[in-house]
């Protein structure tokens, strides 16, 4: 029944959507720097520059929690967890009595010198796997390592349609999306690569033929 109710996308709107996608892709590719394409149609997140794919992550699922988006470019405003806060910002002063082979080299004029000991560098394993990306315009993306919970599925399929009939829901709130990665490393790698200020194109699901929006 649902299939019968779906309006079919015609060839014209497919071409128009592709035109919009390519126009935005060109405007980002012309700029110097990296950008992302979040393709909800194919469950893919691509890191690109100059029209070439530098890295691609395949998500297990991408869904809208609420609201919908037109195909357009967004800028990452902030992440729910700040990388800088994960780092040890203050240098540690080495204890003069520390048994270090270079300890003897650290003295001048008989006075002990303070030596900078770097904090252990952050690796990809130190990155969070569950976080939220807030884009300009109020759009947010929840990145989750794992599978979608049954409660979330029920909310999406049973509660959301009922809520859509509620008069207050006619005001379109900002879209909220969820991206699920079964492999936690992918989620962490995306956190590492997606930096504040980076632009991204979000291709919503149902945006015509897959080939229309494949570059």
């Amino acid at each position: 029944m649902a299939l019968l109710l779906l309006p079919l996308s015609d060839a014209e709107s497919g071409v128009a959507e592709r035109n919009n996608f390519l126009t935005q892709m060109l405007s980002l590719a012309e700029k110097s720097g990296l950008y992302f394409v979040i393709n909800m149609e194919e469950n893919k997140v691509q890191l690109m520059s100059k029209g070439i794919v530098l890295r691609e992550w395949t998500a297990d699922k991408m869904t809208f929690i609420s609201g919908y988006l037109p195909l357009q470019t967004f800028t990452l405003e902030k992440k729910s967890i700040q990388l800088d806060k994960l780092r040890h910002a203050e240098p540690i002063e080495k204890d003069d009595t520390a048994t270090d082979t270079n300890a003897g080299d650290n003295k001048t004029d008989g006075k002990p010198k303070s030596t900078y000991i770097p904090a252990p560098a952050l690796d990809i394993e130190d990155m969070p796997s569950d976080y939220q990306l807030s884009l300009k315009g109020g759009v947010s993306i929840n990145v989750i390592a794992g599978t979608e919970s049954n409660l979330s599925v029920m909310k999406r399929y049973l509660v959301a349609p009922l809520c859509a009939l509620w008069p207050s829901s006619k005001k379109d709130g900002a879209a909220r999306m969820a991206v699920y990665f079964k492999d936690r490393t992918n989620s962490q790698a995306l956190f590492w690569a997606f930096r504040e200020g980076t632009e991204c194109i979000i291709v919503p699901p149902g945006s015509g033929d897959k080939n229309d929006l494949r570059f």
Binding site: L5, P7, S13, E17, N19, L162, A164, L165, P204
Partner: peptide, 20 residues
Amino acid sequence: GAGYLVLHHKKRLAIKNSAA
């Protein structure tokens, strides 16, 4: 069903708006 149609209409509207 009605809710689904409303949601779907919103979605199509958003996608249509994005197309030239």
